[in-house]
């Protein structure tokens, strides 16, 4: 397994960046974004396997012919499960980027953790790849934020997810086991080198009223394909080497990249979540805000 230090670049230090991002989003009293069992009706959503059958709206079923689940505002806490992709490709930092993709993902994750902990919700961290460290169990309180920061600061990117497809399985299995009903699961990844079936497994976590959000973090070079002329491109994971004419294939590449995001978006929409598209040059506060909005049901 290849390990190297994370290129934090202009995103360091994580503590300040995360606090800055979180403060930009946090606005007054926190209202739990969880929908589920409670007293105040919170709307409908499509049924997914695993939902409590008690909340199926039979009237809506008879009227629309579709299985819909009734949602309620709840007073209970909503756990935040952060799944961070720390594979080799996330260590990429292109020309003009403020930092590596993983560094940017760490800032967003830390900011989300601060917001959740400030609202009294527990935060857990799971890893895909990285230095194979143990997942951080759901914790709340000031100490929890420090532990999340420490975990994110010390992560070393590495590993070829194509050589270790079980890494995704391990991460998602932990989420499935420990995430409680109504938890918000945020996957921070470039969504590029993940093995086949990752999307299916991630979408399967949407049972028990969990909200699934994928934050696709791309480097500006990846997002714009700013190469020119004849180039030889080598992937970070796997042994893919491509000789191509950048000007000729740019549009085709961008279309395929967007196609990937669209596919994720469509699969995650039934859970109330979606894909948040981020580039490492984007202000982290904007990305965090989009994630929060998505978690509240505002759409990604």
């Amino acid at each position: 397994m290849i390990e190297r230090r994370l290129d934090w670049g202009e995103l360091a230090p994580l503590r300040l960046s995360a606090r800055h991002a979180a403060d930009g989003v946090y606005a007054g009293a926190h209202r739990s974004p969880r929908r589920g069992a409670g007293v105040e009706f919170g709307g409908h959503r499509a049924y997914v396997p695993g939902d409590d059958l008690r909340f199926i709206d039979r009237h809506a079923l008879m009227r629309h012919g579709r299985l819909l689940v009734r949602q309620f505002e709840t007073e209970t806490d909503r756990a935040l499960r952060l799944v961070v992709d720390a594979t080799e490709s996330m260590a990429y930092r292109g020309k003009g980027a403020p930092g590596a993709k993983l560094a940017y993902a760490a800032v967003v994750a830390a900011a989300l953790a601060r917001i959740a902990i400030s609202g009294g919700d527990p935060v857990a961290v799971d890893w895909i790849g990285g230095d194979a460290r143990e997942p951080l169990p759901a914790l709340g309180g000031r100490e929890a934020f420090e532990r999340v920061l420490a975990a994110l600061e010390t992560v070393r990117p590495g590993g070829d997810i194509r050589l270790d497809p079980q890494a995704v399985e391990r991460a998602f299995a932990a989420v499935a086991r420990h995430a409680r009903r109504g938890a918000i699961v945020v996957l921070l990844s470039d969504l590029i080198d993940l093995p086949d079936g990752t999307l299916d497994r991630f979408a399967a976590l949407s049972s028990l009223g969990r909200t699934l959000i994928a934050v696709r973090v791309l480097d500006p070079v990846e997002a714009s394909f700013s190469f020119e002329g004849a180039v030889r491109l080598e992937s970070s994971e796997g042994d893919v080497v491509v000789d191509t004419d950048a000007d000729a294939v740019r549009q085709a590449y961008l279309a395929r990249l967007e196609e990937v995001a669209q596919t994720w978006d469509e699969r995650l929409a039934p859970s109330g979540g979606g894909v948040v598209r981020a580039v490492t040059t984007d202000p982290p506060v904007d990305t965090v805000r989009e994630v929060v909005l998505a978690a509240r049901g505002g759409g990604a």
Binding site: D193, E222, E234
Partner: peptide, 11 residues
């Protein structure tokens, strides 16, 4: 060769 993680998406 240049490192480019999504190389497999490039035609």
């Amino acid at each position: 060769p240049k490192e480019f993680p999504p190389a497999h998406l490039v035609p």
